[in-house]
Amino acid sequence: MLRDGVAALACCDEVGRGALSGPVTIGAVLVTAATRTAPQGVRDSKLLTPDARRRLAPRIERWAAAHAVGHASPAEIDTFGIMTAMRLAGERALRALAVQADAVLLDGNHDYLSPPDQDVLFGGLPETTHAVGAAPWALPRVVTMIKADLRCAAVAAASILAKTARDEIMVELAADHPEYGWAENKGYAAPEHIDALARLGPTPHHRTSWRLPGLAPPLGGADSVADTHAVASARALESPA
């Protein structure tokens, strides 16, 4: 896309979509025609060990023209649904970039950033989810690419930043809730996590609108049925490692 006249391209990837607890997180890495080759070892975060990701993260931050990470909380996922929460996390990441992007490249084949109504400001999100006094914001052009995390180094770099940031959050939360094993499983549906849910029930950090394993079906929620399918599909795509 940089060869097509795009001056600043923001490459994004998400982590945590299929987790049972914790935020959904979007990483954004902005590159320009002047950006050099990515640091050696950068690849899709799921193919790297935690130590490798932690070593690469500061190198990526120095390499990128701009970088940022955005989160949407479990409460926001429960209130608005996972897809709207991803849009919210993505907008937070893009707004936080030190350089304005001219276009955005997303991994996959679904544009979760663009609102249903392209003329709606704030990415179609309820204004209550934005900082007080936040200026209206126009979403740059969005392009999707299947397997972009394998084909584009900047998307892979974004996945590393997102995974590293979200893992740090889950390790911190694990200190107050050690029974769920979040330091190891990062909020995904690992056996010790499911066992703790059945014994202890959910915490404030769980997505309680979802059909959580070991618990009765939720009484409601933004899109709990759709989120159940998201959990199943994401298990095959994401690893807590």
Rank of each mutant, 00 (worst) to 15 (best):
F80Q: 13
L94K: 02
P191E: 08
K186M: 15
E179M: 12
H206K: 02
A96K: 13
A189C: 04
N109D: 15
R87I: 03
A93M: 10
G124L: 04
A103E: 12
V99K: 09
A85L: 05
T203R: 01
K186P: 00
V132H: 13
L88T: 05
L106A: 09
R141F: 01
R87P: 04
P126G: 05
G124H: 10
D117W: 03
Y188S: 07
I194W: 01
H110D: 09
D111V: 06
L88S: 08
M83K: 09
G90Q: 11
L173P: 11
A148M: 07
A165L: 06
P204S: 08
G201Y: 01
S114W: 11
V104I: 15
P202W: 10
I169K: 08
V142M: 08
T128A: 15
G108S: 08
A135D: 14
E192M: 04
V104E: 07
L200N: 01
V171Y: 00
L173A: 11
I146R: 13
G187A: 03
Y180I: 00
G108F: 06
A131H: 13
A162Y: 09
A93K: 02
A190V: 03
I169A: 11
H193F: 04
Q100I: 10
H205N: 07
T84S: 14
A98R: 14
S209H: 08
R141H: 12
A196T: 03
V120K: 13
D102C: 09
R95N: 09
W182M: 01
F80V: 15
I169F: 05
V99C: 10
L105Y: 04
F122D: 14
I194Q: 06
H205I: 04
P204D: 09
S159P: 03
T208M: 07
T208V: 15
L212I: 02
A157N: 03
N109Y: 00
A131V: 10
P116G: 15
A153I: 02
L200Q: 01
T164L: 02
A89D: 07
I194L: 02
A154P: 12
L106C: 12
L105T: 05
A158G: 10
H205K: 03
V132Q: 14
R87W: 05
V171S: 08
A189K: 04
